[in-house]
């Protein structure tokens, strides 16, 4: 898979080998860690994503926060802006005590066109602040995350994507708590789910 290939290319030294081994290798994270992940945690999928600031982001680093997550691609002119807008509206509608505890994440379907620079431009255009992460990863990791979330997508000959418009809510342990399957979303249900997840965090 693509990530493996790129790791092999990058891993030109013993340090890199050690790092891969220590990290437990991919794609599944060992259950036995200091504080074990819940059995159904999505963070058991180990893949390194890159954020719009160029920073590497491992999904388990999101542990402890409630996460609102959707998959989009930045050149999408149809439903993706609606998805992002819905997430912004959910954030505005959250109770004040909950709002700072919630992380908003967009993961790109489109590693070919969504470079770090493209992600950064998108974050700026959509006025996404530092509670937002816009992420990219190699195609194989995109597929794994999509499969975990039940997101369906396919690339079209013109480079665009057909895709589900799912917005997911993960608790602090990375367990899926709620999914909104369509746009327009049931915003009240999303707000309720995020609030419940943030106030009774998972492990």
């Amino acid at each position: 898979m693509t990530l493996r290939a790129s790791r092999l290319r990058r891993g030109a030294g013993a340090a890199a080998i050690a790092a891969v081994l220590a990290a437990g290798a991919m794609p599944w994270r060992a259950a036995a860690q200091a504080a074990p992940l819940p059995a159904r945690s999505l963070y058991r999928l180990k893949a390194t994503w890159t954020s719009h600031t160029g920073r590497p982001v491992e999904l388990p680093s999101l542990r402890g926060e409630t996460v609102v997550l959707a998959m989009v691609y930045t050149s999408c002119t149809m439903t993706c802006p609606l998805i992002t807008g819905e997430m912004q509206a959910v954030r505005r509608a959250l109770p004040a005590d909950v709002r700072p505890k919630v992380r908003f994440v967009l993961a790109s379907f489109d590693p070919d066109r969504d470079s770090v620079a493209a992600l950064r431009a998108h974050a700026s255009k959509m006025s996404l602040d530092d509670r937002w992460l816009v992420l990219r990863a190699p195609a194989g990791d995109v597929r794994q995350l999509a499969v975990l979330l039940g997101v369906r997508y396919r690339k079209l000959p013109d480079g665009d994507f057909d895709h589900s418009n799912i917005i997911s809510v993960l608790d602090a342990g990375g367990v899926l708590r709620h999914q909104s399957p369509r746009i327009p979303a049931d915003r009240a249900a999303l707000v309720r789910a995020v609030t419940a997840a943030a106030r009774s965090p998972g492990s």
Binding site: R4, R7, L8, V20, A25, M26, W28, R29
Partner: peptide, 10 residues
């Protein structure tokens, strides 16, 4: 490295 990277994290 290949074996480690491909067999999964367990």
């Amino acid at each position: 490295l290949v074996v480690a990277a491909l067999t999964g994290g367990f």
